[in-house]
């Protein structure tokens, strides 16, 4: 059982995950930020590795990715920075990024390196299920790395079932079909969608992401899923000076 499964066993609700882009606002801060987030009470982490063409991201994460690349972040640098991850951080850690940098690094090599660094899972928005299943899943499975799939309000029931069967930690429910950085807008249709997913009684827990930016949206999401992920709001927060010291403040504002 990996760290993710253990977490979902031991804590039943209000799980909070934070996304940030490695290399933003500066290099060599990845583990320090992760450590501060764990101390502030975050349950698990998503560390983004930047890509030049992040089509699923809004302006905030586009900007952090661009800056991170300018700073010299790449997968070699990231794995270098993660060397002491597991000496300093014990909560589950996922990597999140686009497929091409992984492909160029080598998928098998990427999976090995990630697990060596103590990473528990990966979210790759533009790696489709068909290619994952037919070409790459064995590298993930052999190395014990979870692959997390996204589900949107438009994902068919049948496809949700298939995603559930291919998943072994959790399912990432998008609050709506949108790029990152929009504010969650609750409507009857969205509530129906959450209820529909809940009623399917999937084997994997669901976590809601995209558009979670405040205590209000976090609480709302936790009514329908085991927890929620805050991304753009935290990335924006990192713009200010002394962000490391102020992380507890930010997390408190979300968890309240």
């Amino acid at each position: 059982m990996n760290r993710l499964n253990k977490l979902f066993e031991s804590k039943k609700d209000n799980l909070l995950s934070i996304y940030f882009t490695a290399g933003y606002p500066e290099l060599n801060t990845t583990v320090a930020i992760a450590e501060a987030l764990e101390k502030a009470g975050v349950d698990f982490l998503e560390i983004g590795f930047p890509y030049s063409d992040p089509v699923a991201d809004g302006p905030t994460i586009q900007h952090s990715s661009e800056r991170a690349l300018e700073n010299g972040m790449n997968l070699n640098q990231l794995f270098e920075e993660l060397k002491d991850l597991r000496e300093r951080v014990s909560i589950p850690v996922l990597l999140m990024g686009y497929f091409n940098p992984m492909l160029q690094y080598g998928i098998e090599r990427f999976c090995k390196k990630a697990v060596e660094a103590g990473v528990d899972g990966v979210i790759v928005p533009d790696l489709p299920m068909y290619e994952y299943e037919t070409l790459y899943s064995r590298y993930f499975i052999d190395n014990g790395l979870s692959n997390i799939f996204l589900v949107t309000p438009q994902t068919s029931q049948e496809r949700v079932r298939r995603i559930d069967s291919l998943s072994n930690s959790f399912i990432y429910l998008l609050s709506s079909s949108s790029i990152t950085g929009k504010n969650l807008q609750l409507s009857n249709a969205i509530e129906d969608y959450y209820k529909r997913i809940k009623a399917m009684q999937l084997k994997n827990p669901a976590i809601i992401g995209f558009g979670i930016s405040s205590n209000e949206t976090f609480k709302k999401a936790c009514e329908y899923a085991r927890g929620a992920i805050v991304g753009s709001a935290f990335v924006k927060f990192l713009e200010q000076d002394n962000y490391l010291e102020r992380i507890p403040e930010f997390i408190k504002s979300i968890k309240n």
Partner: peptide
């Protein structure tokens, strides 16, 4: 070829 797209574009 293929269709390397995020789930949001799948439908």
């Amino acid at each position: 070829g293929g269709a390397y797209i995020p789930e949001m574009l799948y439908p």
